[in-house]
Design a protein around this nucleic acid. Structure first.
Lengths: 359, 359
DNA sequence: CGCGCAAGAAAAATCGATATATTCCGAGAT
DNA sequence: ATCTCGGAATATATCGATTTTTCTTGCGCG
């Protein structure tokens, strides 16, 4: 059955080669391989011949030619501040799972909070014809692209963007009630850097919840992570515990009249703990510390962190799902917001407030 | 000067549109825009007209069409075990720097040490026509691709692969001499998982250096990170401190007759410290701990880690440089190995050996 | 007997750029 | 007067798939 000129896998097999080998037209071969509906009329025997030859000659359709024709790339762009531990890694574990399932790959671009990059990378990726964008922890308002966008942990009610967010009210509530029930009344707060979308949103939730449970927020106990600290320094890891160390240290120089602190995230909480330790205070005996995110090292730092777990992997997964869905059905309606639920993880860094320095 | 049918940016501008608008041929326009050498003869005035129109109409060459013709994608594939903290993140910071400079993007693929993925992803990425591969901490021997490969921290003297490696002899030497000079004689060793290329290589260096400085390695003090522990568990972060916790705990159940341990990396060292703490031992007073890599959290864990710093960002940068160079000059000779220098970072997790339990 | 129809396949157009070959024209050489 | 050469550009082939259109051929049926 095998024709004469067999066994010459010379060079690369493309559709033409394959068709010639089969003594069929490219059209027929293409229709069969794509299992196209307009190939109904092709008899099974021919199909089998085609499929068999394709696998035997190890035919691989050319990605560019195919994409050029279909104008889709089977890849998405991921825009994130950095490749930091915890946030990026956790979210991406969920994202990758979905993308892989759909035979999608992704380009990563880190903007390091530089305005030019935030503008430039989306454009460059659009030129690479990504089918959609996934924004991690990055404001979506400035990003205007002709493809679907899903923003994880942004809060931008923007056309074309689906926001995957945490229920911040609940998150803050569970953390503050935990501290309140442990007897803490003088609680310090470490706000996130201005650039991060969650920062303000979280802070508003804190103010709201504090009001609801009757907790007074002393403005002098509110500190803030300095965004510029790491954006300027080169070669430095963008989101290191250092960012929590500095402001904690500054607070301690002013006052020690507080029994707990609620940090913006786990990384900064780890830095804060170190600052507390360095100034002779014990965690949690003197000061209870609550983090946010529940990254891997939260469980393994000393003391292990009580923290509000964000279901980051799940958020990534849901985000990717929605994005792929939107890519597949460009005209269909889509959710503008998906809310996920937090969970308090109690570990070693919190304990009942000592009365020693209570007001 | 503007022709009649102006001001219709209808649809997308491609080369044909642009050429028609300029009343020139596509060829001419293309030659000018690419500043091709065979366009020497085109007068400056024409060039200016073309360039001006291109910017004004915001012409963007189609990525697929261009890539199809030139058969190169301006992107590389990065193959790594996972998106773990520390290793991946650090290496990539160097990689990204170089790639960005050259207008390259990258696809990331995590194989999670699954054999099928290690075989599959390179193929899939080749189909996406990546111009080259960067392997992180992944053996290169099984990867057969028709494009240049640079392996970071692999040790595969394989055709087509450039290895970027650490001077392990020196790395081990500096660590062991540090411990030796602190008076440690009974030193435990935590070997890396079998899958990681560095593991065996490092171990051989340890044996060699131990011989050179006259240190006896007690086989009963040698433990090993269990590779299968995390490859099977789903949803678990692949390289968590847990991997160091378990074997340390197992060792402690057998014996406490050692004053120091040299861990495979910082992550496992952090886990080991926790196991030591949990069994009532103090670090470094009872047991000194040395890590490897110097990841970010090494400095911020408690106690901060004494560790051998790998210049990971630099390795990534050099790797990317070489890869881009090899892509640009496919036929030129290339280095098969580039060795980088380690550096010992002494922090809190090591101190002089107590004589309490010396042999 | 010829018409319409469908099965089965092929030819040709298309996607948008780049590479190669070709034309046209006028100046200078033979 | 012919030939060559180079400037200034154009026409055409090519990359490799997908999509649309077109062409046979056999067969049932009026």
């Amino acid at each position: 059955m095998a024709r004469g000129k067999d066994g010459q896998p010379s060079g690369h097999v493309n559709l033409r080669t394959l068709a010639e080998h089969l003594e069929l037209s490219q059209t027929t071969v293409s229709l069969v391989l794509n299992n196209s509906p307009s190939a109904k009329s092709i008899p099974q025997e021919t199909r089998n011949r085609v499929l068999e030859a394709a696998t035997r000659l190890n035919y691989r359709p050319n990605y560019f030619a195919r994409s050029l024709r279909q104008s889709r790339s089977m890849s998405v762009g991921v825009l994130a501040p950095d490749l930091s531990e915890g946030y990026f890694t956790s979210v991406m574990s969920g994202v990758v799972q979905e993308l892989t399932r759909a035979h999608y790959f992704y380009f990563t671009a880190c903007h390091d909070w530089k305005q030019e990059h935030i503008e430039q990378y989306p454009r460059m990726l659009v030129e690479r014809a990504v089918d959609g964008f996934l924004l991690l922890n990055t404001p979506a308002d400035q990003i205007a692209v002709p493809v679907p966008v899903v923003a994880i942990s942004a809060h931008s009610p923007v056309e074309n963007v689906t926001n995957i967010i945490l229920d911040h009210h609940k998150a803050v509530e569970t953390a503050l009630i935990h501290l309140y029930e442990l007897g803490h009344r003088r609680i310090a707060f470490m706000r996130g850097p201005r650039a991060i979308p969650d920062s303000d949103y979280r802070w508003r939730s804190i103010q709201q919840v504090a009001g609801e449970i009757g907790l007074r927020i002393d403005p002098s106990l509110v500190i803030r992570i300095d965004a510029t600290a790491w954006s300027t320094k080169t070669g430095q890891h963008p989101m290191a515990p250092e960012i929590g160390y500095k402001p904690m240290q500054a607070l301690l120089e002013r006052t020690r009249d507080f029994t707990a602190i609620f940090c913006f995230n786990d990384i900064s909480a780890i830095g804060a703990i170190r600052a507390l330790r360095d100034s002779g205070l014990c965690v949690p005996q003197d000061v209870s510390v609550v983090g946010f995110d529940d990254i891997q090292s939260a469980a393994y730092s000393t003391p292990s962190l009580t923290t509000v777990r964000q279901p980051l992997a799940e958020m990534g997964q849901r985000g990717a799902q929605v994005l792929l869905e939107r890519i597949a059905h460009r005209e269909a309606p889509y959710p503008s917001e998906i809310v996920t639920a937090p969970e308090l993880v109690v570990r070693e860094s919190t304990c009942p407030a000592s009365t020693r320095m209570a007001n």
